[in-house]
Amino acid sequence: MNAAEWHAACDRRLAELGVDPREARRLADDSAAEALASGLHPAELFGPATAYATSLASAARQPLAAPLARARGPVVLRLAGVTKRYRRREVLRGVDLVLRGGEVAAVVGANGSGKSTLLGVCAGSVKASGGTVERAARIGYAPQQHGVAPYLTPDEHFRLFGAVHGMGARKAVATGTRLAAGLGWRPRDTVAGKLSGGTQQKLNVVLGELDRPDLILLDEPYQGFDQDSYLDLWAQVYAWRDAGAGVLVVTHLLHDLDKVDHVLELQGSEDR
C-alpha cells in the first residue's frame, strides 16, 4: 500500500464510520500533511489505515461542548410493586421505580433475573401479574433480539418505523441516517440480514430513537458489539438523557454505574 492508497483507505473508513464528509476530508488532509512533515510512510507513523481511522472517528465524535445542564423533567415511567409470575415461577417481585425525563435507570442482574421481562412490562408487550405501571405514551423500544427485519434495508426500516410514527418517508430516512452517524455508522443499501451483528444492533438502536421519544427502553446489545461501539452507545444514552428523555437500559456489563441516576438490581426468579 503506497501513501496515497493509505490515505484513501483512511478517508473511506472515516466516511463508513459516519464522520461528516468535510470533517473526514480535513482529518485525512491533516494526516497526509503530518506524514509528509515527518518524512515517514503513514503506515509507519499512524499504523494500519483502518485502525487509525477508527480511533480518529471515535475521537472526533467527542461532544464539542460540556454536557448540557440537565433539567429533570416530568415522570415518564412509574413502577409500583410490579410482579410477574409465569405459573409457579416468580420472575419479578415487587419492582419499584420512578424515572423522570433527563434520567437514566440501569437494570442489572444475573441472566434469567427477569431483566428482559421487566423491559417487556414497561413496553406493554408483557402483562404484569401485579402492581401498577404508568408510562409516557411516546416511547422508543429496542429489544435485544429480532428487533429488525432481515429482508429489509436500513432505509426501508426507517420508512416503516417512520410511517408508524406518522413521519414522511424522506424525513424518516434523513433522521435515521443522522442518528446512525452518531453511532459511527453510515447505512447502505444492504438488507439487515447481511449486516454484521454490531451493525444490526446499531440499526436496532436507531429505530428505537427515531421519533424523539420521551422514554427509551433499551436492551443493551452486547453480541457483536466491540468496545468502541459500546462506548458510543453509552455516549448516546447520555445524549438522550441530556436532551430530556428518560432512558431505561437493561445492561449486562456494569459500566460506570455511578454515572446513571437509578440502579435497579433484579434478584432473579424463584421456584415455589
Binding site: S125, P143, H146, G147, A149, V164, D211
Partner: peptide, 15 residues
C-alpha cells in the same frame, strides 16, 4: 412467521 417479533415491536410504539 418472519415478522412476528418485528410486528410486536411496531405495535409497542403505536402501530
Amino acid at each position: 412467521v418472519n415478522s412476528r417479533h418485528l410486528d410486536r415491536r411496531l405495535t409497542v410504539v403505536g402501530a
